[in-house]
């Protein structure tokens, strides 16, 4: 029976949604932010696959239908952005400076930590694009001589981490302005952080969506220069 079920293209699709809503339920019941539905659902699906022996390929056959919607959904981030266009125009300089500062901090902190751990160029280059969206990050990693699989793993982990810990970071750094929150989420945790920003509100979502594009492009420009710091 397991074989027939997992062979169906709807298996991965269903199991993903089922685990997500189980995650939503758990978060509601516990009332804990750390019980993030996305994180929980990923852990649950992995556990189900491991326990049942169903391989990732069989799962992804159905699950990839969900992934197909990622590009159109990213495009639709233009909707909150359009609605907040006045806000964007009024604060253009503050927005741009914050994202550039954040991106420089990202590269700088990765450089320092890599030095501290005595990492080689390959590992350093794999980590450099960790805060930006997967599609741009993979390209940068490859070009700079990183290992693309590590980059993808780190980008996804960064996104989930940013999504989960944002409330704590906002408290710690006393960040309360919705524009600042959105920029912080998008610049540090790309689209997965933006998913959290959308939950916070339309301004947060719009600013976070914008940050994905700007931080991505700034990293394309800066990362190749920084890549040579560890030869």
């Amino acid at each position: 029976m397991l074989e027939i079920l997992s062979g169906s293209a709807y298996f991965g699709f269903f199991i993903s949604l089922f685990c997500f809503f189980t995650g939503v339920f758990i978060q509601k019941k516990t009332g804990l932010r750390i019980m993030n539905p996305l994180m929980l659902s990923i852990i649950m699906v992995i556990a189900i696959l491991q326990l049942s022996g169903i391989d990732y390929k069989a799962y992804n056959q159905g699950a990839q239908i969900i992934s197909y919607f990622l590009t159109p959904a990213t495009i639709c981030l233009a909707i909150p952005l359009y609605k907040q266009l006045r806000l964007l125009k009024d604060n253009a300089l503050a927005i741009l400076v914050s994202i550039v500062f954040g991106t420089v901090t990202s590269i700088g902190s990765i450089f320092l930590m890599s030095k501290l751990f005595g990492m080689d160029h390959t590992f350093y280059a794999s980590l450099l694009p960790k805060s930006i969206t997967t599609a741009i990050g993979m390209g940068i990693s490859e070009e700079l001589g990183g290992i693309v699989t590590i980059t993808v793993a780190v980008i996804i982990i960064t996104g989930i981490l940013g999504n989960v810990i944002s409330d704590l970071v906002f408290k710690l750094f006393r960040i309360s302005n919705p524009i600042a929150k959105g920029l912080a989420l998008g610049t540090s945790a790309h689209a997965i952080g933006t998913a959290r920003a959308m939950e916070l509100g339309e301004i947060e979502g719009a600013m976070s969506g914008l940050s994905i594009a700007v931080a991505g492009i700034v990293t394309v420009i800066l990362a190749p220069m920084a890549a040579n710091w560890i030869g």
């Binding site: 991965g12 993903s16 949604l17 685990c19 997500f20 539905p37 996305l38 659902s41 990923i42 699906v45 799962y59 992804n60 699950a63 990839q64 969900i66 992934s67 919607f69 990622l70 959904a73 997967t134 993808v152 996804i156 996104g159 989930i160 999504n163 689209a191 997965i192 933006t194 998913a195 959308m198």
Partner: peptide, 8 residues
């Protein structure tokens, strides 16, 4: 959108 990141 959050659901779309599950497969990745």
């Amino acid at each position: 959108m959050p659901i779309m990141f599950i497969p990745a």
